[in-house]
Design a protein around this nucleic acid. Structure first.
Lengths: 332, 332
DNA sequence: TTGAAAGCGCTAACAC
DNA sequence: GTGTTAGCGCTTTCAA
């Protein structure tokens, strides 16, 4: 059992003042002037008794938990999510907000769990970081007036505050890089989305055609090692093998490198590869991989900032697009 | 501002019972019998008013926050940490505990921040996951009676509850694998620890000598891409090049593969490589890498379970060692 | 089987 | 400038 707390009452007694005064001093309450010696007496008592205000009592009074729920439905081991989390944490820390992590398990019950956490006062606002948020659920959140922000590479800003990145706008530039290497037949490989349309596909096709290059097609498959290998093997063994591949996500890119090597296809040279998205292995792979890297940390930071603004009834822009960047390495 | 809460008082009024009864029903309070129809009336009112008990009020009364602080001082993007977190979360979720994440920043102030969080009732117990915990700080925690558990690959169980793994005991077996491939000259490369002695070093040396193989030395350096590259280049360019390398952490292993390839050293064949520790890249590298893999998820799960036991005044063993496993892949 | 009432530790409106 | 006091929403003793 936790030992008995030192309360502000104890401090008040020790300092020979009222509990209210203790509160005034500790919170620097506006419009309340405290005599310097009184303040000092309180501070001394605080130190002497090793007093720590209870966040629960305070929160109860103010109806605030001083925590933000961070939600993802990707595996928590996802590098991108963790990198964002770093930004979120740095920003929230400044305002003394804690991070409460929530993970999607069974899709159905999950939205309820989120609401439950909010309703039970376990956090004051929500950041969805790389989490699927259905339009229905957005409606529900909006109706309930729950502060929330969505951070996602493919942000729309429709009906909600979102933070995204312009990485698809880097594609024409990436295509130019292929062209400069003499790679004119290009293919795309990446995950297969079932319910939604994947904006990457159109962006790729558009960029290839405006660049005047040849589109060898889209090679999509579920995000699963075996399927990816198979898909890419098919792609690299096809009659008109592409000279360049854009991978929708790093894992597809790495498998391109691996399978190309197994088939004796030289990268760079016979084939050029670039991926969308970051990982800690882009530098380590052989060859190291060129990529459109997302400003993950800043996205997190920016999302957290937006949420804080919303919670404090400040203005917050509904869509923030952060600039992403192409990092050239050996593979292209 | 959050809208006004529905309180248990409201529910009581709606159901025509007292607030106490609502509490009894909702908590299934022991030694209190409630007439079925009363119970039903309460439940109906709860549903009708969409009532959610406030964790803050409850926590205040019971002096519990129903949150556990999870602390790491490695970069949060560390794969091992994230995997552990998954286990921790799954276990805590069962008991309705939330996860509050804390990250080490400036070493000095950090311990105070942890205490501050505990003292202000922001969490009820602590899990150190891959975090440095000094003996002094352990003492402090013990003295204050703060429930905590340490999860670390190199656990000692001294003065605290710890969860670890026996991966170093897999080394003789790993050495045998090198031997079977005809690799008799072995080197170790890994991070350089400054303050503590690294148990991996002795374990490697012991295993090599009991296996009757030749120890080509320990090649240590700070965990930093440039230094690692340099160190490993030195190792692979040395006169009596080893035929096998044990990497203390995955990154060192991957650089071995990369640099060996650049030098035209064939892996496997001319050289065999294995790493301690897991990553998502082990399968993707070329060649894929043999490793002693840690039961990260279970470590997390087990640590969380131990903490829950401690917080509930149940018995918890002070040291739990989980079994790790060698996963053979192409590099050895 | 249920209710009345006290109190957890805090803040803030109001009084002096 | 500072104190009094009334809750915030809950649990739990004690009484009925």
């Amino acid at each position: 059992m936790r030992k008995k707390r030192v309360s502000s009452k104890d401090v008040a007694r020790e300092a020979g003042v009222s509990q209210a005064t203790v509160s005034y001093v500790l919170n620097n309450t506006k419009n309340v002037k405290i005599k310097p010696e009184t303040r000092q007496a309180v501070l001394d008592a605080v130190k002497k008794l090793n007093y720590h205000p209870s966040y629960m009592a305070r929160g109860m009074k103010l109806n605030k938990s001083m925590a933000v729920g961070v939600i993802t439905d990707r595996s928590v081991t996802n590098y991108n999510f963790m990198k964002m989390l770093e930004g979120i944490k740095d920003e929230l820390q400044l305002s003394n907000y804690a991070i409460t992590l929530l993970f999607n398990k069974s899709e159905e019950s999950f939205n309820n769990e989120i609401l439950e956490y909010y309703n039970t006062n376990r956090f004051d606002g929500i950041i969805f970081a790389l989490a699927m948020v259905s339009d229905d659920f957005k409606d529900e959140l909006n109706k309930s007036g729950i502060p929330y922000v969505i951070i996602d590479s493919h942000a729309s800003g429709k009906d909600s505050h979102e933070v995204g990145t312009d990485h698809l706008e880097r594609l024409p530039e990436l295509i130019e890089a292929f062209k400069a290497k003499g790679a004119v037949r290009l293919a795309y490989t990446g995950p297969l989305w079932i319910n939604k349309t994947d904006p990457r596909l159109k962006a790729f096709e558009d960029a290839v055609s405006s660049g005047g290059l040849t589109n060898c097609g889209l090679f999509l498959c579920p995000f699963n090692d075996e399927m990816i290998k198979e898909t890419i093997a098919g792609l690299l063994n096809s009659d008109i093998r592409p000279q360049g591949i854009v991978a929708g996500s790093p894992r597809y890119g790495f498998y391109c490198l691996k399978i190309a090597a197994e088939l004796g296809i030289k990268v760079p040279g016979d084939l050029y590869v670039a991926s969308l998205g970051t990982s800690i292995f882009h530098e380590l792979s052989r060859p190291s991989m060129t990529a459109v890297e997302l400003p993950l940390y800043d996205m997190g930071r920016c999302g957290a900032k937006a949420l804080l603004d919303i919670m404090n009834d400040k203005e917050a822009s509904s869509l923030t697009i952060l600039r992403s960047e192409i990092i050239r390495r050996e593979s292209l």
